[in-house]
Computed example of a mutant assay.
Amino acid sequence: MAYLQNADPALREYILKHSLPQIFQALLTGLCVSCPERPLHFLERKIVSIQENRDTVEIEWAWKRFIWNKRKEARELTLKMETAERHYIQRGRRVALCKWVEWVQVRKRRQNDAMKKIQRVWNAIHCKIVIAAWRYVVQDSKRTKEYFEVFQSLDVGDLLKCAEVCRTWKAITQTCSLWSRISFSVERDWITDSIVEQILQKYRPFVVHLNMRGCTSLQWPSFKCISEY
């Protein structure tokens, strides 16, 4: 034993010879295991039993059982603590998952509400744009109708001049119904072959009636263009 290394050799030999450490350990073990109400009386009886060499083995086994029980309790406590720790971790994860799912649902509801509001605003703006465009188209169509009624009474030369005023008038003058009846006889004083070719190449699919009476200035290119039609 470590505490006997520096002891007097005679004393150490005496202690080891009479097994005093084992006796003290057995007596202390008996006290710890039995917990008697009268410990001194218990020690007296056990000393007598040791002298008679009857209870030494019993005390040693009691000490061993005490150690085993303590170790068993420690192992059981360790297992319980590990189980409790796992349960706590799982419960914490479950709570965190529930909170996360709830947060996701709240975020989705907010996003859906925001998208609905944005959609309503967009629909309102789109309706305003459509209504404004429709009003503009209606007004423009009214003006176009008025222009068209005026352009129907114009001759070829006047239509060509109106087409040079602006884009709107040019688009109106390109209406096929304005070129269904072409009379070059009214413009015979200034009409040329190039103008006839230009007009017929652009509008001849819509021409129903063509008047060339008195157009003596027209030559072969104009008649060739008419024949191709």
Rank of each mutant, 00 (worst) to 15 (best):
A2W: 04
L4S: 01
P9F: 06
L11F: 15
I15Q: 01
L27I: 15
G30S: 03
G30L: 09
C32L: 14
V33I: 05
S34P: 01
P36S: 04
P36K: 06
H41D: 09
F42L: 00
V48W: 05
I50P: 00
E60S: 07
A62Q: 11
I67P: 01
I67H: 05
N69Y: 11
K70E: 12
R75H: 07
T78P: 01
L79D: 08
M81Q: 15
E82Q: 09
G92Y: 02
R93F: 07
R93S: 03
V95W: 10
A96H: 11
W100T: 12
W103S: 12
Q105G: 00
Q105M: 07
V106K: 11
R107M: 11
Q111Y: 07
N112K: 14
A114E: 10
K116R: 14
I118R: 15
I118Y: 11
Q119W: 02
Q119M: 09
V121C: 08
V121W: 06
N123V: 02
R135E: 09
D140A: 09
K142D: 03
T144S: 11
K145L: 11
E149H: 07
E149D: 08
G157W: 02
R167M: 04
T168Y: 00
T168G: 08
T168W: 05
I172Q: 08
Q174P: 00
Q174R: 15
T175G: 10
L178K: 06
F184P: 02
E187W: 09
L200K: 06
F206H: 14
T216S: 14
Q219A: 10
S222R: 08
C225W: 03
